[in-house]
């Protein structure tokens, strides 16, 4: 099977998966009790007639399949339907929030792997020595800490040190500034949320890298390479890392998939205007189209992440190409 046909087939599967996930999400939202205008019914100043009119205007009175079909046609049009809470098309709302989330998660992903790969290879080499034990202890502690707590700890750091702003993406007024100072302001605001995201994703990935590298180091191929006097970076990069690579590449694909979801909780805690707060609000107020849109984005990232991982495996492992 050629690489191109492989990609096309995986893309087709990906489309089907995305469609299936959207139907499932829609069905689950449908099954959950309540809808957007239920809050209005509690307001004594708003008559039931008004609520009915509003529901009709927003097409909520139609049957579920009809509404799903309408939403699908909105997806094809590119606006992803109308947000009930914001009264605007969902698409521009999502793009902006997704961009903010990616500003946080893409650097976090690179930093995580940039730390995890060398540190994992190194701790595998010095396994059992004091640095390795310290590292294991630290990752255990981080794994045990809930993400929420890490976010709160970062806020505490911001408050106590006073070096970094506590929450938000821009200082008041800086958002409209087009100068280089705006980038600096953004960077200052991003430092702590970045740390929080990295600290919450790093331990698991680091452990996987270390475990894979330990297995690889014990393989007969690495033993043979050492027997030939191959050492240092040549041994670690060309032998240990390549032999350990396959599970790690799959893991890297999954970490691409988690780009949108990795920081949701931390965004909420640290008031980063990403997808996290938007999704929480939409879920609480049953703003169906926003929830659907965000879920779709996450699914697309999942499919894309796996595809990238499979292609990377195809490129890395000659046995898969054969």
């Amino acid at each position: 099977m050629s690489a191109l046909r492989f990609v096309l087939r995986r893309l087709a599967y990906g489309g089907l998966i995305t469609l299936g996930v959207s139907a499932l999400t829609f069905a689950m939202l449908e099954l959950a009790p309540g809808e957007f205008f239920d809050d209005l019914k509690l307001d004594a100043t708003v008559g039931t007639h008004t609520v009915e009119t509003l529901r009709q205007e927003h097409g909520l009175t139609a049957s579920a399949p009809v509404r799903y079909a309408e939403w699908l046609s909105a997806v094809v049009r590119g606006d992803f339907g109308l947000s009930l809470a914001h009264d605007t098309p969902v698409a521009p709302l999502l793009w902006e929030r997704m961009r903010n989330t990616l500003v946080l998660t893409v650097p976090a992903l690179f930093i995580t792997w940039f730390i995890a790969l060398p540190l994992g290879l190194w701790t595998a080499r010095v396994r059992g020595r004091i640095v390795d034990r310290l590292c294991s202890g630290a990752t255990s502690a981080l794994l045990a800490l809930p993400d929420l707590l890490i976010g709160l700890l970062m806020l505490l750091v911001a408050l106590k040190s006073g070096l970094f702003p506590a929450g938000g993406m821009f200082s008041p007024g800086a958002a409209d500034d087009e100068s280089a100072g705006r980038i600096g302001d953004l960077a200052m605001h991003a430092v702590l949320p970045l740390c929080a995201v990295v600290l919450s994703t790093l331990p698991a990935i680091l452990r996987h890298v270390r475990a894979s590298a330990i297995d690889a180091r014990q393989s007969p191929a690495v033993r043979a390479a050492r027997g030939h006097g191959i050492r240092g970076w040549r041994l670690n990069l060309r032998y240990v890392l390549t032999i350990a690579a396959n599970p790690l590449i799959s893991l890297a694909g999954l970490s691409i998939a988690s780009l949108l979801s990795a920081s949701l909780l931390i965004e909420v805690v640290m008031s980063w205007p990403g997808l996290g707060p938007l999704l929480v609000d939409a879920l609480l107020s049953r703003d169906v189209h926003v929830v659907l849109g965000a879920t779709m984005l996450a699914t697309v990232f999942l499919v894309a992440g796996n595809l990238v991982a499979d292609l990377a495996l195809y490129a890395a492992d000659p046995r898969i190409r054969a």
């Binding site: 007969p220 191959i230 390549t242 032999i243 690579a245 000659p318």
Partner: peptide, 28 residues
């Protein structure tokens, strides 16, 4: 020098055999 048994395991599957012999030369 060393010659190991079980040749299926003593070479890494990820590199060409030429590169694997070459690595021994480059190491020294």
């Amino acid at each position: 020098g060393i010659v190991f048994q079980e040749s299926a395991l003593a070479l890494t599957p990820m590199l060409t055999v030429g590169a694997q012999i070459g690595d021994v030369v480059r190491a020294h």
